[in-house]
Simulated scan of single mutants.
Amino acid sequence: MTWTSGKITLAPMGMNCKKMRLLQAEEADFFLDGIQELYHVIEQDPALAVSREVVRYGRLKSYLVRALSIMPFLFHFRINLKHREQVNFSAMISGDFRLMLPYVFFSRQNYIYMHDAWPRFQSWIFPMLNFFNIRYVFFSSKQVWQDHLEKDPQSTCKSMWLPEALHASEYHFESYENKTIDVLEFGRMYQEYHDLIQMPLAHAGKNHQYRKQNLPVLYPDKPSFVQALAQTKIVICVPSDVTHPERAEYISTMTLRYLQAMASKCLIVGLMPSDMGELFDYTPILEIEMHRAADQLLEIIQNYEMYFPLIERNHQEVLLKHQWIHRWAIMKQKIEEVHE
């Protein structure tokens, strides 16, 4: 790949790699902005003939994955069928290998982009990569990638850390003077922090948007979510190891919400994931001051123009370095390197 003024020109793949199948779950189970945006970028690659396959989850698939996860001795039984030169690619949450079935048994060219491979699942996720003929896995978390290297050093599946990204053209922003939402909390709630800021912001008459307990989601669809982001001054972003330590344990990673806020020219107030410091050569967020949580936010809102330079710098960083076109260029190169 080559870089020109912050843009990537994708090198053409070898002839055997041109046919690629993107595997996705049924839409009801698949509404994940980052995955959809990545697939759209891959589909726009002129060097590839891309098809998208919606995979249905049957009982047999679920039983097979569940049996493998609780009976490790089954990994010794490898299914060898006639292999074709079809490249299969799936972006998945944790170890949902049902997405790859039955396609992985008919090809040795299988690749995964994986989110949320939490430590308690790794004892069966890592061996399944070998069992299912996965050639390369791209982990969204650096710590998970390091776990793979340390816990499964003999793995036949290559791996690397490749952070989440977005497709910036799917987001927009209002001018600073037209932003009407003062503080937005979306996604996972940092309840301890929320309890400190909710009443003071309300008493100060600030527009504070967050998911109410009686509602399953804050915004019903992506367009309304994107519009809300465009109108927001401050977004609260906290990694999963803080909001849900029982699930994430020690995994602290930059998620899509940080980049979505930056692409929409919102100021981020929160806590910085451990791997985010390697992605930015400056501090892109304002760290939460828990001892004065509400006062800190009110002061930021009062002096919001002071943070315009940081907001603009974050926006440029996302455009130049953290879009799916940048990540896909790397994935494409790695697939080419290991392709037979």
Rank of each mutant, 00 (worst) to 15 (best):
Q146S: 01
Q146I: 00
Q146A: 03
D147W: 04
H148W: 08
H148P: 11
H148C: 12
L149E: 13
L149F: 10
K151L: 03
K151F: 10
K151Y: 03
K151P: 06
D152Q: 12
Q154C: 07
S155H: 00
T156M: 10
T156F: 09
C157T: 05
C157Y: 05
K158Y: 07
S159H: 09
S159F: 04
S159C: 12
M160R: 09
W161S: 05
W161A: 04
W161L: 05
L162D: 04
L162E: 01
L162N: 01
L162P: 07
P163T: 04
E164L: 15
A165W: 01
H167K: 15
H167F: 15
H167L: 14
A168R: 05
S169I: 10
S169C: 03
E170P: 07
E170Q: 13
Y171K: 05
Y171M: 08
Y171A: 03
H172Y: 06
H172E: 06
F173C: 02
E174K: 09
S175V: 09
S175D: 14
Y176P: 09
Y176G: 13
Y176L: 15
Y176E: 14
E177C: 14
N178W: 08
N178S: 06
K179F: 06
K179I: 03
T180H: 06
T180F: 06
T180I: 00
T180R: 13
T180M: 07
T180Q: 05
I181R: 08
D182V: 08
D182M: 07
D182Q: 09
V183G: 03
V183W: 02
V183Q: 02
L184P: 07
L184I: 12
L184A: 11
E185D: 15
E185G: 13
F186L: 15
F186Q: 11
G187L: 04
G187Q: 04
G187R: 03
G187M: 05
R188Y: 07
R188L: 13
M189S: 11
M189Y: 14
M189Q: 15
Q191S: 15
E192D: 06
E192N: 07
Y193K: 07
H194N: 05
H194C: 01
D195T: 12
D195H: 00
L196P: 02
L196C: 05
L196T: 01
L196Y: 01
I197Y: 03
I197C: 03
I197P: 00
I197F: 09
Q198Y: 11
Q198K: 12
Q198I: 08
Q198E: 15
P200G: 06
P200H: 06
P200D: 02
P200T: 01
P200I: 05
L201C: 05
L201P: 03
L201H: 04
L201S: 02
A202H: 08
A202N: 11
G205K: 08
G205A: 09
K206R: 06
N207C: 07
N207T: 02
N207E: 10
N207A: 06
N207F: 02
H208R: 02
H208C: 01
H208G: 09
Q209M: 11
Q209A: 15
Y210P: 10
Y210V: 00
Y210L: 02
Y210W: 11
R211H: 11
R211P: 04
R211F: 14
K212M: 13
K212P: 04
K212Y: 13
Q213F: 14
Q213A: 07
N214D: 14
N214E: 14
N214H: 08
N214G: 07
N214K: 01
L215D: 08
P216T: 00
P216M: 01
V217Y: 12
V217Q: 11
L218P: 00
L218K: 00
L218H: 00
